[in-house]
Design a protein around this nucleic acid. Structure first.
Lengths: 333, 333
DNA sequence: CTGAAAGCGCTAACAT
DNA sequence: ATGTTAGCGCTTTCAG
């Protein structure tokens, strides 16, 4: 393996000069620089980044933790993070937890072991060490940013949208369309997103003078399959559902299939609206109405927030709320 | 920052003993070990993995490069890699190229700079340095495994399925179903997967005594949108297409929508079959028939192959071919 | 079983 | 402008 010493010897200079040529070329006389660069090329030298990291004490690597990479919503955010991270000179390590606490802790440990500088967390699980901080009422012990859920009592920057308002917008759309028996399929009950979206649902029903009925509220786990199952349950009750607000697009796609599989029509018999605007929604049958989240921007904002945490910049705002948008397609129109 | 020296001092032993306690506890007397562990706990010490990597010259980190994370096919493979990597003690850095050579080279450089040990490559682009090796007729200069495409002339392990045979199976299914005007929508022409799948298509038509007509072969880029567009083009020609084989599921979903949007029925008027069996296919309308690739196994096989390369084990076989499977759903039945 | 000491490859004072 | 040198935090001979 060729090291900086080999280059130094070859070019007839000191290792310091080689190091300078590589990191601040202007600090070296042109002629010397040329000799060094020649040696570098000749010997096919690439600096050892691990050694550099050890010396500099900066890793310029961040971890992004997602529950499930194959979820287009998460991967959209990751894409936003990646783009900006790259420009800002960070590497990104992507960790998938598949909902397992053990996996999550494993990835969070990478910042303890100095592999990475900080963490961006998507999803509803918190690393054990962070839970401990929350319990103790203190700030998390590692640089951390939350990129879609919020956790009360966790002192760290959070980026997201106003889920209550967004849910309101979705349900309002159903009301305006003339639906009066509006059901909802929520995510898991321990999830802040689920809670907020269910809250928006209730607020609109109340404001519209419609009854709020627990029997009209199904629960899924954000997968297509769970949306399909939950919708079937809802339909089985024979309550005359004529519209359904699903807490994400995947469940909405499942719900649509459930409706269609009973010979009912979407949207004539049951209007369906989802949440997220994933890529497949527009090509579902019928094309899915939804709330669009600015996934790319969410990712970038999270990256920016983490960068600020890492540089201990005055944390201007603990949370950034990005705008959402109603997208009307065939499933409600 | 607490280091190994702090622990040594606290426990009244040498740093060597601390190091041993941590990596080979049995080599230390029980009593000493206890003292060290106590100090570790008391001072909340976590070893610096960067320093360890520098010393040990092993990173135990691999890079997985994908063109697009939000493609469920790739993310399925990544999931397989991740699972096994974790068990084998590797970290995985995930890089998304978005089709950009520059991004690809950036990630490939991470093994040159000793951030990572090796590379698993999905997609059809090759790092510049690897292209150079191919051109020079020599083995790639970095540990490398290909996980879905093959490249003639590249001497490295490759895992995948038999794409020609799989395509044959798909088209054969269409033939057996009674289709006689079978079109295909291929991927980009510079892609080995596209080529192989188109090849299978032709072979079946030839064997069935059906004419092979360039006008029946559309080209997409593996996105839903391109499938939609390509199918419309095909339909515009008025050739009486009654079946279409798409080189992946996303294009098939787009193609289905194109058919439906013209008031034609799937599968009665046009039967549609895709490739990959992504999660959304089963919930498309109608549910999509397809060829299932064992994505998880593909990922695991790739990880295993890379591990062998990294340990310079006798490379038993340059390539592993995994079995595929026909999945019949509503779009052809 | 434990300790001393020599680095891994690089950067950053500090000299010259 | 360049060189010398002391580490970054850890592992690993080699002695004892």
């Amino acid at each position: 393996m060729v090291t900086i010493r080999d280059i130094a010897r070859q070019a007839g200079v000191s290792v310091a000069t080689v190091s300078r040529t590589l990191s601040e070329p202007d600090a070296v006389r042109a002629e010397t620089r040329a000799r060094v660069q020649e040696a570098v090329a000749a010997m096919n030298y690439t600096p050892n980044a691990i050694a550099r990291q050890l010396r500099r004490q900066r890793k310029e690597t961040i971890i992004v933790i997602v529950p499930d990479i194959s979820n287009p919503f998460f991967s959209g955010i990751v894409k936003g993070i990646e783009n900006l991270a790259h420009d800002m000179g960070y590497r990104v390590l992507l960790g998938e937890t598949q909902g397992k606490q053990e996996r999550l802790d494993y990835y969070a440990d990478l910042v303890l072991t100095r592999i990475a500088d900080g963490l961006i967390l998507l999803g509803s699980l918190l690393p054990t060490m962070v839970q401990a901080s929350v319990a103790a009422g203190q700030a998390p012990s590692i640089p951390l940013v939350l990129a879609c859920e919020r956790f009360d009592g966790l002192q760290c920057p959070t980026v997201g949208i106003d889920n209550v308002a967004a849910a309101r917008m979705a349900v309002m759309h159903l009301v305006q369309r003339g639906c009066s028996k509006i059901a909802t399929i929520t995510g898991p009950a321990d999830n802040s997103l689920s809670l907020d979206r269910a809250q928006g649902y209730r607020e609109v029903l109340a404001a519209a003078g419609l009854p709020i009925d627990g029997a009209m509220m199904g629960e899924g786990d954000f997968t297509i399959e769970s949306g399909f199952a939950a919708m079937n349950l809802l339909l089985d009750k024979g309550l005359g559902v004529d519209g359904v607000f699903c807490a994400n697009d995947e469940m909405a796609i499942g719900a649509q299939q459930a409706v269609l599989s009973r010979g009912l029509r979407v949207p004539q018999d049951v209007a369906v609206i989802g949440f997220d605007d994933i890529r497949f929604g527009a090509f579902a049958y019928p094309p899915l109405s939804t709330i669009r989240q600015p996934v790319g921007d969410l990712g970038e904002a999270a990256m920016r927030a983490l960068d600020e945490v890492l540089h201990k910049k005055p944390t201007e705002q603990q949370s950034v709320i990005l705008p959402h948008e109603l997208v009307v397609r065939g499933s409600t129109a």
